[in-house]
Amino acid sequence: MAYWLALLHAPGLGSRGYNRLLKETSPQQVFENPGLANKLGSVRCDLGSYIRNPDWDAVETDQQWAEAAGHHIITLEDPLYPALLAEIDDPPPVLFVVGDPACLALPQLAMVGSRNPSASGRQTARDFAFHLARSGLAVTSGLAIGVDCASHEGALEANGITIAVTGTGLDRVYPARHHELAHRIRDNGALISEFPPGTPVLPGNFPRRNCIISGLSAGTLVVEAALKSGSLITARLASEQGREVFAIPGSIHNPLARGCHQLIRQGAKLVESSEDIIEELSPLLGTLIPDTGETPPRKPDSAPRQLDDEYLQLLGNIGFDPIHADQLIERSGLPPETVSSMLLLLELEGYVSSLSGGRFCLTGKN
């Protein structure tokens, strides 16, 4: 293990250079034969010089981290290394895991989407994750705010397994607001990273994280995504890895639906329910059972549960396509201050979702 970790810390080597070495030799042989290291090393890495003076302090830090309860280090040669991930081009040679590493072998569905979803998009992610987890799929995402968070939470509410792939070392939680969520994921699945402890938040780490998210999974579901979105990169990676790509359509007026619509035009499978995904993946995985149980519990509502006639009148003028508040004032005949107050309460109640530009739409709540 020490040689694997020492090679992981070689500056400039990266997964591609590391995997090139593994095709020819072993980490131990690299350190025992510096000449071989020079021959096979990356052009960006003076591997021979590093081999003569490896960073054993970093290796010791990694090994000390692994001594804590629930901490694991898995190499490509380890039986616990996830088989699907090993199939991708240049898989991470070393994985750091907090939680149960055995869950990495479970059938997984990646769920990704906007960091700033609409209220209905957030609820959709939560509901899909709930039912998919109940069907036997582990839900894999990236611990980010928005759709990622809702997906993890939905799986946890179903008492299912969820896996979070991070772009930092596992000695920190990013974003920090998800500290409690990370602990719940640890206890009901796993957090994994290819980056050793001490790795900070760096923009270049997140494309690699996305590659692992899709690589672990039989398919990737995109819930809401703008046209220029990291979620579309994850979907592209999934397609290149030979995995299924699913997308949830939305209103043509919703900018967060355009990325999903683009994916569907490019061949992603349009889904309207979790059963659509189960039906598609069952022949590949063979162990999935469609969930026909109840929907996940909703959070306590803040607005009155019994809507009076004015609220019903206002709701009658709102559809699933976005409408501006000024149009609602005109259609309903209600005073502007009344409409503004009612929209706020309806949003808190979960009946409507607010969008950019002062627009609103129904969420689908009865």
Score class of each variant (00 low, 15 high):
residue 239 S to E: 13
residue 335 P to N: 09
residue 111 M to C: 09
residue 186 R to P: 00
residue 34 P to L: 08
residue 337 E to R: 13
residue 315 L to F: 10
residue 17 G to K: 05
residue 166 T to A: 12
residue 313 Q to W: 03
residue 365 K to D: 01
residue 223 V to E: 05
residue 206 F to W: 12
residue 251 S to P: 09
residue 4 W to K: 07
residue 166 T to V: 11
residue 236 R to S: 14
residue 121 G to Y: 03
residue 131 H to K: 14
residue 144 A to C: 10
residue 221 L to P: 05
residue 172 R to M: 14
residue 296 P to Y: 01
residue 219 G to E: 04
residue 315 L to G: 11
residue 245 V to W: 04
residue 174 Y to A: 03
residue 168 T to N: 03
residue 265 R to V: 06
residue 207 P to F: 10
residue 66 A to T: 09
residue 35 G to N: 11
residue 185 I to P: 00
residue 303 A to H: 12
residue 12 G to P: 11
residue 295 T to H: 12
residue 83 A to M: 07
residue 49 S to I: 06
residue 364 G to W: 07
residue 86 A to Y: 03
residue 38 N to L: 12
residue 219 G to S: 09
residue 233 I to N: 05
residue 171 D to V: 10
residue 274 S to H: 15
residue 140 T to K: 04
residue 68 A to P: 01
residue 100 D to V: 08
residue 171 D to Q: 04
residue 237 L to A: 09
residue 228 K to N: 14
residue 214 S to E: 04
residue 357 G to E: 12
residue 55 D to H: 07
residue 147 V to M: 04
residue 58 A to L: 14
residue 128 F to K: 04
residue 53 N to Q: 15
residue 56 W to I: 14
residue 205 N to M: 10
residue 39 K to P: 00
residue 220 T to M: 05
residue 312 L to T: 11
residue 105 A to E: 13
residue 242 G to Q: 06
residue 70 G to P: 10
residue 317 N to G: 13
residue 54 P to G: 13
residue 261 H to I: 04
residue 84 L to P: 02
residue 325 A to Y: 02
residue 23 K to G: 06
residue 256 L to V: 01
residue 30 V to Y: 02
residue 204 G to L: 11
residue 257 A to L: 10
residue 70 G to C: 11
residue 141 S to K: 07
residue 23 K to H: 11
residue 276 D to W: 04
residue 37 A to M: 08
residue 77 E to D: 15
residue 311 Y to A: 15
residue 59 V to L: 05
residue 38 N to Q: 12
residue 197 P to H: 08
residue 249 P to S: 11
residue 183 H to N: 13
residue 356 S to E: 15
residue 126 R to G: 00
residue 312 L to V: 14
residue 340 S to D: 09
residue 54 P to E: 11
residue 194 E to D: 04
residue 65 W to H: 04
residue 42 S to Q: 03
residue 119 A to C: 00
residue 96 F to H: 07
residue 336 P to R: 10
residue 12 G to R: 10
residue 97 V to S: 02
